[in-house]
């Protein structure tokens, strides 16, 4: 009986206390940031507008491997591969339909060359949905973005313009198959 009374008391008082505490929030400061009057700081790793970066040599980083396209949960990235005369892969088309994009950042995670990166810019509203379709020229920026120093073709084994077989990082000279020496 005593226990029941105690429980009843503590239950009632806890509900009343909760109500009281909630009411006291009337006099607290509000957490909301009144965007757009006040613009918050967004960290560099914020997931906003997508860009295509260049490698340290200034060449396109994207090799049109299509991994961003396939990892995209809303299928809003379309990449068409092309090859230059030296065998270097590059995207002939790189199109993002931002009216479908959910800014999940999977494409950035999937990108093996650090080409595709998300930026802290999210102010992309348009009155015409068609304007939300970004082509390669709209996406490509001049710099390396968040990943300085990385150049995929310097790591990959394929020969491309300016880098022959065996000239990449950590590569031995091509094997001479005509020799019988071990």
């Amino acid at each position: 009986m005593k226990n029941a009374a105690q429980t009843a008391f503590s239950a009632t008082s806890s509900v009343l206390r909760t109500i009281g505490m909630t009411f006291m929030h009337s006099f607290r400061k509000r957490e909301t940031v009144l965007y757009p009057e006040e613009k918050p700081y967004l960290p560099p790793r914020y997931r906003g507008r997508i860009v295509l970066t260049r490698d340290p040599d200034g060449a396109e980083r994207c090799v049109a491997c299509n991994l961003c396209s396939v990892s995209c949960p809303v299928d809003c990235i379309s990449v068409v591969k092309a090859e230059d005369e030296t065998g270097r892969w590059y995207p002939e088309t790189f199109r993002i339909n931002f009216s479908r994009c959910i800014y999940c950042g999977f494409c950035e995670d999937a990108c093996p060359t650090y080409a595709i990166q998300l930026t802290p810019d999210f102010e992309m509203g348009e009155f015409d949905r068609q304007n939300m379709v970004y082509e390669k020229s709209d996406l490509t920026i001049a710099g390396v973005g968040k990943r300085p120093g990385y150049n995929f073709y310097r790591v990959a084994g394929m020969a491309v313009g300016g880098k022959d077989k065996g000239e990449a990082e950590n590569e031995a000279k091509p094997v001479n198959i005509k020799t019988l020496l071990p």
């Binding site: 929030h25 009337s26 957490e31």
Partner: peptide, 8 residues
């Protein structure tokens, strides 16, 4: 609700 949840 906003008031009691520290928002507007």
């Amino acid at each position: 609700l906003g008031l009691w949840q520290d928002r507007y």
